[in-house]
Design a protein around this nucleic acid. Structure first.
Lengths: 337, 337
DNA sequence: CTTAGCACTTAGGGACACCGAGTGCTAACA
DNA sequence: TGTTAGCACTCGGTGTCCCTAAGTGCTAAG
């Protein structure tokens, strides 16, 4: 009873089950995968695999299907991800290169990934951990109303209209802007708060209140970026892919809609050696996703923001992982320009 | 065979079917709705209703269910929409009043509406047909890179970074801004294009190229607003509500994802007298939505942007319509401040 | 350790009958 | 003319029975 063959059997079961959707039996296995042994031997192997909790038989007279643990071992066993086809790579490249805005880029990415994998794709907005302040702007809209704009070195622009406690002049604003800009030059967005606190003290007394309001706004704008948003696409794929509908699809849609949940989930994913991180079924911390798997990876300069997909546990992990990784790489590359 | 009673029977059938999900027969009708006649009479009425194509029997020995045409008549018959409960009204009010941003407002609105109706809610970003230019700003980020900001009187801020053909100075930009601002003062966003064309001629020659680029950007920013975006929420409700899953839910999710489709759909909805517009099943122009109904209404000063819901044809029209209308009204009110 | 053979289990599917809900029709009735 | 009671008829859904096919575990031999 050789251990390597048992793993091979597991692999075969996973592969067959993933694309047939039906429990796979010993005989069928022997036929389709030219393992050099008889079905009886496979049965013995299967018995062991079942004992180890890697596969399970839904009914006595049915074949076996992988458990979450089985998928996990299967995925861990996967050493090299086969690269995408040339056509797919070309598709990625041409699609992403046409993008302008960062919003546009992410939007295209997420659509692309959902098409490539036939799953629901999600992309987190880039973290700004290392992003620096590139520019700030205060625009006087009304005597006590100011548009605050914050531009980061990643090209992200956030803006917001606020009401300041007392009327200010264009002059005042200009002065404050110089003040802040000087203090913030080259500061990372995450440290904006501490830097601005100091600056506040050096502001002329009569502008103190206004300055404080502006600082609050800037902090919030920096926060928006860090707070994370995400884009998603391909929810319709859920309807196709899932076998037993109402029970599976509902919770997944809910999780997707509660972006907070998704974002936390994504941020909790640890990258493994291959650079793609997989969470399978019950490995997910939120009960509602116990029927779903997440495949994700980081992108961008520090790989801190995540891009990935969400789908039923019964998914084609190798291809999905390859697609996610490829898209993440192209995305990183595009963002570098 | 009184005509009013036939309508009453239709109403009863619709109501029963909507909340039982099962074909309703003559006997059950007589019991639950104290119509003063026997089941035999109802049967006669039903025969007529069926002949008119308002109801249909899925099987010979089953009760009747309303057809799209039946729902239509039912909806048209609805004269007054009963107002929401006090609790619901309070919920709307408190939720919407806490909002800051316009994005925030719409986000809250759409969530609220989806909860209220248990359907998928969609809100179109406000049209800017009557919105005017409030402010424009050019910010020099790099010698040939400019952030263009356009602020409308509705409080909407759109921005974009563009590359100009030749390096410009802060001075140049300031000058151009004054130029444009003067030309655009009080112009509606829709007419921005024509106004700017004239202005272009009066620009110093060496700035012509830059000015043209800026104009293009402004036009696009104005266009973004008109081009419409939308927010949605409550897709998970689909999973609960729909009876026969894979066939119904897939197309609907697809339509929702193709925002273009949804937006066209919404913009095509004509408001009727009651102020709420309903499209039922096959009345929808896109085949994929033949199983779905849309209930929507305009909001905002000119009621040009739409807010509404999408759900299975078997829905509680009266309550849904009331909720949509109420939310639209509160939304309009909040936007007025 | 592998294999062949075999007894055993069981989901799924067809055949069948039955029940009940619902219908349409006819004839009597107001 | 519209309403009602009665009745024969239809037919979907359900339960039972049975059989088949797929699959298993076990045992004994290679």
């Amino acid at each position: 009873m050789s251990e390597p063959r048992r793993l091979e059997v597991l692999r075969a079961i996973v592969e067959d089950y993933v694309h047939s959707r039906e429990p796979v039996g010993s005989k069928a296995l022997v036929e389709r995968h030219h393992l050099g042994v008889s079905s009886a031997t496979i049965r013995n192997d299967m018995a062991v695999l079942e004992e180890e909790g890697l596969i399970v038989a839904p009914h006595t007279s049915a074949g076996r299907i992988p458990t979450d643990k089985g998928y996990r071992l299967f995925v861990d066993q996967l050493s090299d991800l086969k690269p995408l086809s040339a056509a797919e790579r070309r598709a990625i490249q041409t699609l992403l290169e046409g993008a302008e805005d960062i919003d546009d880029i992410l939007d295209r990415t997420v659509r692309l990934l959902s098409q490539l994998t036939n799953q629901v794709a999600v992309v987190q907005y880039p973290h700004l951990g290392n992003a620096k302040v590139r520019h700030i702007e205060f625009v006087l809209l009304a005597p006590a109303q100011v548009l605050v704009v914050l531009i980061s070195t990643t090209g992200r622009v956030e803006q917001r209209v606020i009401t300041v406690p007392a009327p200010v002049t264009e002059q005042d604003l200009h002065e404050l802007r110089q003040h802040f800009l000087q203090a913030l030059a080259g500061t990372t967005l995450t440290r904006i708060t501490s830097h601005l606190a100091d600056t506040l003290a050096t502001v002329p007394a009569h502008l103190r209140g206004t300055a404080a309001a502006l600082v609050r706004a800037l902090e919030q704008l920096a926060g928006i970026n860090r707070e994370d948003r995400m884009v998603m696409a391909g929810t319709a794929n859920l309807a196709r892919a899932t076998g037993d509908f109402p029970l599976t699809i509902g919770p997944i849609l809910e999780a997707l809609e509660e972006q907070v949940v998704m974002l936390r989930l994504l941020s909790e994913m640890e990258q493994d050696a291959r650079g793609v991180s997989v969470r399978i079924g019950s490995e997910n911390p939120y009960g509602s996703l116990s029927e779903a798997s997440v495949v994700a990876t980081g992108y961008g300069p520090d790989a801190s923001a995540m891009v990935g997909i969400l789908g039923p546990t019964r998914m084609d992990y190798p291809n999905t992982m390859a697609a996610v990784r490829a898209v993440a790489r192209y995305l990183s590359r595009v963002l570098n320009n």
